[in-house]
Nucleic acid binder design. Structure first.
Lengths: 212, 212
DNA sequence: ACCTGATTCAAACGAATGTTTAAATCATAT
DNA sequence: ATATGATTTAAACATTCGTTTGAATCAGGT
């Protein structure tokens, strides 16, 4: 059993428990038990509980953001070459689609998505600063692209609507399991494409609407 | 200094700290310090930390839901008497307006709103079950009214869109302070009415949109 | 003034937390 | 085989946690 085995098992277990119970409600003992590792392994491999959280976020957020960044760049290059402006729907899709696709990818990534969803709900938390360090450049470019795609919407209103969309998305990210208020006749199993377009139907309409 | 003084001070302090740092990251010692009460006061007046959380939620959620319920009933009676169906905007307003109004009311209610916002982000948490006990009847009626107001939207799609709206709303509830990603030139000070209508512009457009 | 019940207080409880230690074990290259 | 560095292990570390205790203090009625 090599070093990376233990490290990975700890990362997976912690990702799962942090997502399910939250950072503070999860003990290192419960993590190492689930990972079948010794209690001291966390501090040996990661240094501290907080650094473990950082490693969890970095592991998946870095490649995810590279995909988002690549799709956004490709879209902007394409529209610029064609002399048009990107649609709000296409801009948002570069952010949302890789997110929901990663969740369906398995091997614990659904836990990561839920963890990020929780993180967004704790503005003052430890996870938020780690998260924002990875997100800030991309978020700035995304806002810029949305501003370009919606010339009729003021920066003021645009900001709030982006806020609303992020709220919706983080909620969807958190709730990957059947909820108590979900009616029995509502199916929650959809393909990634269905999920993405269902979300974009909602989000784009809200982004584009003229003031009433 | 009477009994209710200490009880109220503990409720206010705990509401503030639970909202800011989360339930598990807040200790009874930090609560009683902020409330200028003895450590044992929490267990004397409330029995346990968990019962304190329950008291916090009950204190404000009960009257808030009565207002929401009253406004929804009034709307449904009015439209039924007129032989029409309620608009989606009016139905959503009966839920959203009392919420954002309470936040602006002061005396710590903004902490409660943020706490509920956090609660909605912890599906498996202790607060969620306490919260849902108070919310389930109203949520069922709200969903029914929305179904009535949007005859063109299937139950399946409607459920998801309500999900999205709740995500947006809970996000707005959490973020009552200026965020790091908020551009400098974006004002976050609005009247309740402005806030409500800005939110409803977004949410109603997403609820009503035809599939693309 | 005195009694009674409610409230406050300092102190301590056992349990659980994140972290550290030092010895034991493993893997690998010479 | 042996030496070396990486990893694992059991045990203990000092804190902090929620809760409990029993005495002290308070308020109000007789």
């Amino acid at each position: 059993m090599s070093q990376t085995d233990t490290k990975q098992r700890i990362l997976d277990a912690a990702e799962h428990l942090f997502a399910r119970d939250g950072y503070h409600a999860t003990s290192l003992r419960s993590i190492t038990t689930e990972a079948e590792a010794n209690l001291a392994a966390v501090n040996y491999h990661f240094g501290s509980k907080e650094s473990l959280l950082e490693a969890i976020i970095d592991r998946r957020l870095r490649p995810l953001n590279q995909i988002r960044q690549g799709q956004l760049d490709a879209l902007l290059q394409k529209t610029e070459a064609a002399g048009t402006i990107p649609s709000c729907r296409d801009v948002l899709r570069t952010f949302v689609e890789p997110t929901l696709r990663l969740r369906k990818q398995g091997s614990g990534s659904e836990n990561f998505i839920a963890l990020i969803g929780r993180t967004l709900a704790e503005p003052q938390g430890i996870a938020m600063s780690i998260f924002m360090r990875n997100m800030e450049p991309l978020l700035a470019r995304l806002f810029q692209a949305l501003n370009l795609s919606l010339p009729g919407v003021s920066r003021q209103v645009l900001f709030w609507r982006v806020h609303f969309v992020f709220g919706s998305l983080s909620h969807v990210m958190r709730c990957h399991e059947r909820h108590s208020i979900v009616p029995e006749d509502v199916s929650i199993d959809m393909s990634v494409e269905e999920e993405v377009e269902l979300f974009l139907d909602f989000a784009v309409a809200g982004m584009e609407v003229k003031k009433q």
